[in-house]
Design a protein around this nucleic acid. Sequence first.
RNA 1: GGGCGUGUAGCUCAGUUGGUUAGAGCGUUACGUUGACAUCGUAAAGGUCAGUGGUUCGACUCCACUCACGCCCACCA
Length: 910
Amino acid sequence: MSDRTDHKGKSIEPELPPAYEPQAVEDRIYRSWEESGLFDPDNLPGQRREPFVIMMPPPNATGTLHIGHAMFLTLEDLMVRYHRLRGKAALWLPGTDHAAIATNTKVEKLLDREGKTKYDLGRAGFIARVEDFIRKSQGTIHKQIRKMGSSCDWSREAYTLDEVRSRTVREMFRRMYDDGLIYRGTRIVNWCPRCESTLADDEVEYREERGTLYYLRYGPFIVATTRPETKLGDTAVAVHPDDGRYRDRIGQVFQVDFGIGPQDIRVIGDPAVDRAFGSGVVGLTPAHSAVDFEMAEKNLLPLKKVIGEDGRMTALAGKYAGLAVEEARRRFVEDLKSRELLQKTEELDHNVSVCYRCGTPVEPLTSRQWFVNVDQEIPGRGKSLKRLALEAVRDGSIRILPERFEKVYFHWMENLRDWCISRQIWFGHRIPVWYCQSCHVDEETEGRAGAAGRVMASREGIVVSAGEAPLKCPTCGRDEDIGDLVQDPDTLDTWFSSSTWTFSTLGWPEETEDLKRFHPTQVLETGYDILFFWIARMILMTTYATGQVPFETVYLHGLVRDEQGRKMSKSLENIIDPIDVSEKYGTDAVRLSLIIGNTPGNDLRLSEEKIAHFRNFTNKLWNVSRYILMTVGEVRRPSGRPEPQTLADRWILARLDEVKRDSTEDIESYSFSRAGERLRDFTWNELADWYLEVSKVEGGKERLLEYVLYELLKLWHPFMPFVTEEIHRRAFAEGEGDFLMVASWGDPAPVAPESDVGDFDMVRDIITAIRNLRATYRVDVGREIDVTVHADRQIGLVKRHAEVIRRLAKVAVLTVAEGGDRPSGAASSVVRGIRVHVPLGDIIDIEQERSRIMTEIRKTEDYLTALEKKLGNRAFIERAPSEVVEAERRKREAARDRLDKLQEQLTVLD
RNA sequence: GGGCGUGUAGCUCAGUUGGUUAGAGCGUUACGUUGACAUCGUAAAGGUCAGUGGUUCGACUCCACUCACGCCCACCA
């Protein structure tokens, strides 16, 4: 205590206000963190070799923060802050996503309100408009990320469409093209007529609708269909090869005429056909159905595209050409009826595929697009992209939490088809391919790898934004100046660029220091809803590009739902805005409400009441600190572990150690909720409710209180960065730049002797028993009562804590004796072999007391009977481990003892 | 059609390799303004762990089936 004199006291600070006021603290604290530069791992104190890296899943650049963002920011910040405290080079790299389709659609809607279309502005004008829109709305999300307390390194911030990331994308495209993994070809794609663009398979959703099943007289067959107009594009019918009705016709060709001239139809056999559905004959439309397309490839059937990208019938649809699909269907059905080709119709429920962005029904059609071939063997690697991505998870290089999603991942990856990466929207990474107009490009060979001279994928060049081009055609020597080189008008699927996120953010393909130091990353934390969109593709692209996995662990969180388990939506008016509630209850309270009760892969129910509860808790921690600060006077950062003086001291240190050990383990194993619950229980139920109360009696605990508070603040900091940092600043900080954020977590302490915990529990139980008796007999809180405790073995312990018991249970005179008669007119209770008597005189109701004790006796008897039965079972004695048998014996002895004492009380009651 | 998950106190959920008299918070009830905190305190009531069967000395925990709810994938023309 002598060194207290040279301590710069904290008494300069005004006393802590009685309630924590987050509004007065948070922005200031965040600013001071940011100004300190400590979010940047290069500025962290000490030698930090071991990295801990998380790449922030980039929110849409034009978006606003919703509760889902708040959740991932909280979970990621928790991990990053924890590992920073553990002395690692913690890097959390933030960024935003250009979200090609989403942003494109948003701006189109804005234009629509002005009565314009993108065509009015032209491509360059439209993109300028999009960029303008992004510039204007980009600030919001940044501010909101800060509001949540996110300790991310803004100096390394990335954007999926900035220069560095554009370079990454071009380089990727070029390498994959050279390796034959990217090709241009005519295949069936999902086409959204509203977006006027292709969609990837997983960008298609299904909606159940009631529809009509039309039965058509179809040459010699009856064919059922929900899309009669597509029958104009049929080139075959399929039947089950074992179907007796049609088996003999397989291989034949016949003609049908739906009013646009004869169509040649071949009969093929395919076991996929369901004999029981409809007529058992399927009309095949290879150009407008993925399944039919595959059958057509197998059977070399011709394609006949009758629906175009504009959602209208093509010239091949004869007199229906130019009609919108619905109109064509209506007229076609009319015509069928009048020609008596429509046998009947049926109503049925079926799934309609729709665009996940705009909900418009998707039109499957064949189109010439760019694809990533996932099955092609990679030169020099001997494996396909699919194989690489499967192996990374299968061999444990990547672990997915919760584990069950690994199965989902495998299933999806195994069934993955070629990935269509070209999009017909204007905003995004333009496909880095030029076509030479002077060379005669052959439809058949164009787009094939090695067809250089006709198609050039470019990687070189500095100017990326404007669309840097090859200088001249390597085949004919023409250059762009004379307009012979034309860039592909399409852009890339937005997931193509986001799938490079873990390494593009570090500067790839440059061999940067960051890349060497921080890749692969440790954790990728995101929602399970983008497992396929994003995670799977990151694994695919990263293993290909870098030969490393993108991350070691995938932590998948669930959805935030309302208190009734419903999704939050505008129409239900059940949206909780994270910024609003952070301002109302404090960010720390919001964070806790998103951590506690949240387990990987499971949805979380959230309500304002829950947030309010954690606001109460932050205030509790504040007041615990406030009390300690007031008691200690001049607080000083503990230099080491203080010497315990009393049982309570040993108990709180033992409990603190245990909680620290367990919660550390919880965080390491991603059980954040459990860690938080443990800390809350300790803080509230042990430290505040017991140790602080005991300290008021025993006194002289300055060093202990300081130590426990300091350790506790560190443990809480990853969960509640603001309130802990503020308390630290007012209590322990040695100067302005001294942050709890970079304190040292410290090693786990050795396990303390169990007796300290057990002995203190006994004192606690005695106090609780007295309080219990007081409550039973409605003894006024203000009234002090006399209590007699009869203890035998533990008499010393009880005597040593007489004062604590007296004060905490509001006892006037506490008599402790080894044994003796029960005082007359006393209410009694037995805890851990100790008899507690509270003489209440005439208050006591003998009958009530008797029945109360009888109930206790009955309970104990039942318990004892169960134990005796168990111990009387030979099989149990023989087969159960001896320590289990021993434990049961001890329990039996304790129960017998308790029963004896209870019965004794009953006999002396009269 | 295939796969996955959930079902524990009125509500929201813990319960880690099988051994607890099955826990917490909220809510409810009773009492309470003790100088850290009413954003608080003390205490109480409340559960045949969805059901059935099995494995085991022993099942909330493991297995099978059933029921209920939820999700994902595929997609029947």
